[in-house]
Amino acid sequence: MKSKGKAGEPVFRVEGVTRVYRTGAVEVHALRGVDLALNEGEMVVLLGASGSGKSTLLNIMGGLDHPTAGRVFFRDQELTRVSESKLTAFRREHVGFVFQFYNLVPSLSARENVALVTEISNDPMTPEEALERVGLAHRIDHFPAELSGGEQQRVAIARAIAKRPDVLLCDEPTGALDSATGVQVLEALSQVNKDLGTATILITHNAGIQKIAHRVVILADGQIKSDSMNAEQVAPSEVTW
């Protein structure tokens, strides 16, 4: 059984992270000295307009990108100075990703997309169990082309949680969905956060969604503008946009 940190202890620590993209003569400052700590079991919404730096921050925390300056820690391990293979191992063992456009493998069925991850994990759930958790037990052998957008995103969530990750990083998980379907996805994410205690970071540009989280971090122009706790969490079914 994978050990999880104690609830309330930091799972991610971001210290002075800056990210500058250079394309020719143009410099884009996506992040400007961001400091942030995210705790075990928390559900955090990263809110901000397009270009605010939220996806960049998520990618850096998930080991998909390197900061130009600053440091990032996952528990005690500093991610900013490790090799590519160690970052791969980090993602493999600790991180579940959910993307806006699902990123399922079209040639694998729902079960097989989840099995893709369970085959390389220590102590995963079975694909059937993961899909059951997101309410897709009856669609287990269907291919992505045979599933609706919401169903595909739920398969992606099942794939992300099957390895029992320590963190779930979700980049605009409802961005490609209508509000009704999006609510289903949010419900799945909330349930996972409650049942498995997985720290969940959810990026959205949709302000209404912030109510389902414990904490809301607002980014603008590559900096954290506010970081506040929600007094109470609202159920996803009560959220509209």
Partner: peptide, 16 residues
Amino acid sequence: RHELATLRVLGFSRGE
């Protein structure tokens, strides 16, 4: 490319 990048994100090594 998309699919293969997804595998990398999911934690598959370059070799895999």
